[in-house]
Design a protein around this nucleic acid. Structure first.
Lengths: 212, 212
DNA sequence: CATAAAACTATGCAACTGTATAAAACTATG
DNA sequence: CATAGTTTTATACAGTTGCATAGTTTTATG
């Protein structure tokens, strides 16, 4: 490892810490209370240091948003990729991951809600949201197409788009409902309801979960 | 009309204006930028006047949140109530209203996202959210129960809860997806996708929409 | 019209905001 | 060890924040 890499690594480590501190601060205190001084406190450094790693406050917020969306997407995508060659299993894994921790937690939904309004005020934030939204949508559509094809079903582009919209919407809705609900039944049965409903929407009996 | 009522009405009118100004300000500039001075500007009054109608800034934010949730619920509920005695039609109307303007607009979703984090920091905001969430959930569950009963189908409490969760989640998810999407196809086909999917979930062919 | 209450404005204050900058501490290298 | 570069702190600044308060205008009533 060259020296240049070491300092780069140190630099990234501190930068990472600041980004994580930003996410924690926003989740716990809300974006309105996430000031540079509070973020610095969470990271255990003086407030001036933030400017050494990020040019502006907007900069660190954007970096934190990117990290947040990346983490959600990867959690589902990596779980899915482990299943090779079994289209229905891949879809089931992808949906299941989106309906379980660490994606389904109050912290995640809070972060999502705190960031969302910024994507209407800051062009860079809009770009970041659209980038990851497109990746998720495309992945889901492809998974559905392949799962249906595995059962010898071919659907039109229009129908595929509608199915994808419905499933995507239901996943997002259950994600929010589950994370916000104080009712433990809701969070426990979330995965079951989501998979069974997806099975009904797609007409894929093989996707659904047996009752316990 | 007695004088007491006139002054009360005037007072409410100004209070209304301030609440509306708060909602507009939050939707356009985000909760972080919704200061008492900006809100006063939107309402066309001096900043000091807000304190005459609301004890604290939290107070006017809470009042605005209440108004916001009330408006969403009423838009769907009143549309539904017009259909008497036809359970499936009532359900269809309720779902359709939740998938159309004025509920499905970027402004509404933005307001929702801006308020949500506050319900984790302010106990009163939590109460307000839970109050309206319970009303919506109960209404939807009852509508589903009656629509199924009209087709001679009786479901267990557990099954009804699951169906309600799934439909509610899908509606919320499509609501967000539709309002945030810049793709016009999405917003146009939202209602159709939502109703057809609800039909699939409930197994109620009579709920679905014919293709145009 | 007089006058008291209600509605509204103007201004001030301490605390806090993002940012700039200079000084300090630390680290690697000759 | 010296010294140049990097990382970190401390402090200062102008602008903004929620809130308080005193004063002004408007409105209702005898």
């Amino acid at each position: 490892m060259s020296l240049a890499e070491i300092t780069l690594s140190d630099r990234n480590e501190r930068g990472n810490g600041l980004i994580e501190a930003t996410l924690t601060c926003i989740a716990e205190e809300g974006i309105s209370n996430a000031t540079v001084r509070k973020i610095a406190n969470y990271a255990g450094v003086s407030n001036g240091l933030i400017r050494f790693y990020f040019k502006t406050k907007d900069g660190i917020i954007q970096a934190a948003y990117q990290r947040f969306l990346e983490r959600i997407f990867n959690a589902a995508y990596e779980a899915m990729e482990e299943r090779e060659g079994e289209p229905v299993e891949r879809l089931r894994t992808f949906l299941g991951a989106n309906l379980s921790p660490p994606i389904v937690t109050p912290e995640m939904v809070l972060l999502w809600a705190n960031f969302l309004p910024l994507t209407y005020q800051d062009a860079r934030m809009t770009e970041i949201r659209e980038q990851w939204y497109n990746m998720t949508t495309r992945s889901l559509r492809e998974l559905i197409r392949e799962a249906l094809a595995a059962e010898q079903r071919v659907v039109s582009d229009r129908e595929l788009r509608h199915l994808s919209m419905a499933i995507n919407g239901m996943i997002d809705g259950l994600w929010i409902e589950g994370a916000l609900s104080t009712d433990k039944l809701v969070t426990q049965e979330l995965r079951e309801v989501g998979l069974n409903t997806a099975a009904k929407i797609l007409g894929l009996e093989s996707l659904s979960v047996e009752r316990s």
